[in-house]
Structure formats: C-alpha cells, structure tokens
C-alpha cells in the first residue's frame, strides 16, 4: 500500500516537466526515505537523480520498498490535468499494475482521479559516490538558463571555466564565438540573485549544450542552480526543491577528438 499526499502538487508537475524530455521511461522508487528516481537518457550520456523526501509530504505511507515503472510522457499528460494549486495524492496497491493520481482543488470542491498503467522497466541503478569538486558555482537558475540558450544559438558545446576571475561560459560555431563571464557577486538585495564561486583549483570542461539546455527545464523548480565541476567527474547541475529534495543532472564532459 502506497499513499503519498503532496499539498504543493505543482512541485510534482514541475518535476515532470523538468525530466520528461530527457528520460522516456523510468522506475520511481518509493521507500521510507522518500520518492526517488534515477535514470539515464536514451543515449546514456546524462543521468538524472530525483529525491522528494518523505518529510516533505503531508502524508507519506509506503509499507514496503517498491519500484514502479512509468512512462514519463504519460505521467506528464496526467499531471497536466491537475491545477497548479491542487493537492496531489499518489496511490498504489500492492501487486497492482496501475497507479492512481488524485487531484484535489484547494477548496475541496473538485476531486479527480487518474489511473495510469505501470510498466516493467529493466534499468541499471548506478552508485553515485560523494565527491570533492574542483569548483562549485551557485548562481540564479534563470541566468544559467539564459546563458545556455544564448550560447546554443552560436555553437553546440559550452566550455565552462572557473578561475579566480570568475566563471566563464564560452562557445564557438560557424558564425563566430561567444564568451560570458560571471564574477562572484554576493552584494545583492536578495540571496537568490547572488553568484557564489567556490574554487579549490581552476577547472575547464566542455559540455554538449543540447543536454545543458535540457537540464534548464528544471528552472521553475528553484531560483538557484548549483554547478559542481571536477576534471575527473561528470558535472552536476543541481536544482533544489524547496524543503523536499532535489533534481540533479549528471553529464560527462566531451573530450577532444
């Protein structure tokens, strides 16, 4: 028996919009810790990890650890039928091949339930160790989204370089080249407008902009994004989900051919 009641149902809607273009089918895992997912994109270049902690739900009942295979496009279709202010409850019975999403309007005058077929998905679960990063950049998520969008009109890849001067996003393409430098800026009125750069050592890595642009679909989830870089590791692009958890995207760098 599974029953997860999320008062801020819009969070789940935003999570689906953030990941559905990257991942087609995925297993959602439910345990005492929370509702989570780990999945690779179809070309096995990027990995997404989602955690919605049990404490973030108004009611969280998960009698045993369960893994439920879902088509994210179908799940998104159903969640789009929930209002932005609706309370969403996810319900499942042991051994059932369906899951139910219940949507309640804030005034309780409309209650809808949508039943979705589950699917069997054979997926690898990867262990992601804690790591030390050469540099961690925390910046407004809308700014990061804007930079990725702007650079993708010039080139296909972005070089992200962190030095003591700041963080530089560079690209090059047939029509020319572009460089955008952000300096650390903590003297802003609101904390969510700050750019904070922690650098242990300089780092410079190249990534496919197509994937970076896909990650920025998570922008509505968080006003800030954290980009963790290390020369031996995939970049981690993390969007925290208020009080509940995170969506993290991992992308391996491109190497010189």
């Amino acid at each position: 028996m599974l029953e997860l009641r999320l008062v801020q149902g819009s969070l789940l809607k935003k999570v689906l919009e953030a990941i559905k273009d990257l991942v087609t089918d995925a297993n959602f895992d439910c345990s005492a810790t929370g509702f989570s997912l780990q999945a690779m994109d179809s070309s096995h270049v990027a990995l997404v990890a989602l955690l919605l902690r049990s404490e973030g739900f108004e009611h969280y009942r998960c009698d045993r650890n369960i893994s439920m295979g879902m088509n994210l496009n179908n799940m998104s279709k159903m969640l789009k039928c929930a209002g932005n202010d609706d309370i969403i409850t996810i319900k499942g019975d042991d051994g059932s091949d369906t899951i139910t999403f219940m949507f309640e309007s804030p005034t309780q005058d409309k209650i809808a339930d949508f039943e979705m077929k589950l699917m069997d998905i054979d997926s690898e679960h990867l262990g992601i160790p804690e790591a030390e990063y050469h540099a961690i950049v925390r910046m407004p998520s809308a700014e990061f989204s804007r930079i990725c969008k702007d650079l993708s009109s010039i080139g296909d890849t972005v070089v992200i370089s962190v030095t003591k001067e700041g963080v530089k996003f560079s690209t090059r393409g047939d029509i020319g080249a572009a460089n955008i430098v952000l300096r650390q800026n903590t003297t802003v009125d609101k904390p969510e407008e700050a750019t904070i750069i922690e650098m242990n050592e300089p780092v410079s890595l190249t990534f496919a902009l197509r994937y970076m642009n896909s990650f920025t679909k998570a922008t509505p989830l968080s006003s800030m994004v954290t980009i963790s870089l290390s020369s031996e590791l995939p970049v981690v692009v993390e969007y925290k989900i208020a009080e509940m958890g995170y969506v993290r995207f991992y992308l391996a760098p491109k190497i010189e051919e």
Binding site: S43, V45, E124, L126, G127, A208, L233, Y250, L251, E257
Partner: peptide, 14 residues
Amino acid sequence: DGGQIPIHAFFVKS
C-alpha cells in the same frame, strides 16, 4: 556523438 563519454563510465552499478 563524437568525443562524448557515456555517463555510466563514471559510476559503478549498485
């Protein structure tokens, strides 16, 4: 996709 390292090259199966 030229020069792109697959992500599972970095993490071990758990």
